[in-house]
Amino acid sequence: MIENRPGLNLLAHLTLMLGVAIVALPVWVALVASTHTATDFMSGTIPIWPGPHLVENYARMLDAGVSTSGTPPVGTMMLNSLVMALLIACGKIAISITSAFAIVYFRFPLRNLAFWCIFITMMLPVEVRIVPTFQVVADLGLLNSYAGLSIPLIASATATFLFRQVFLTIPDELTEAARIDGAGPLKFFRDILLPLSRTNIAALFVILFIYGWNQYLWPLLITTSSDYYTIVAGIKRMADAVDGLPQWHLVMATAMLAMLPPVAVVIGMQRLFVKGLVETEK
């Protein structure tokens, strides 16, 4: 439907502006809050315009953190989050692309059962199985470790399903041509499937990185040592200040910093990401 009426254009733009305002306002408030000092919040109102303490607040968070709430400097938490998000994103992609490869291209007994088992786990998110998962991770001695942070979240039915759909769109004749060209299964996987799903891998990486970065409940449960705090869980700990008011200006500065890596990933991979979501031709 292509209409060209000024009235409709105006309406469309107003709707979009409203949408942007709804999304951007909290970010603006956080940004403004991170440029004030603790005393500016005493009155109970949040300032609407930026204050002069931006550099000071951010430098303090990056350098020392808030020792009263027991959190390490933001740098350490950012690094922990980065390691966790990368391990989860890469691990999920690696595991799901190989399982999709097995399910689509090999005829083995109970193949359909395997697929349905994977598919059914989509109905069991982390929160549902969190107690038994915690038990397993604790018994394996993985509390307070990168392995404990990432491995329980690393299997992905959604990604497996997505790669299965991608592989199903690759024409059979291409597989047959590769067979005649003498490409064994692994060579076929490396030379044909991987390059052809490049854009899908990129799109999935963006989504999974953000998923991993935003993990909150799981890191909160299994990290007790501040060396392994992730930034999202760290913000929560900071806001929970005992005997004192939360240091809102510092919490907001941390929140702003926590937003940066996902934004960087989205912007950096935007072109591939969009291509991966809309491209259908193989």
Partner: peptide
């Protein structure tokens, strides 16, 4: 195996590797 039969095949939809 097809690869070892010493044959080459031309397909209807060409089956060229797109990448």
């Amino acid at each position: 195996e097809p690869a070892d039969r010493d044959i080459a095949m031309v397909f209807q939809n060409y089956a060229l590797y797109p990448h």
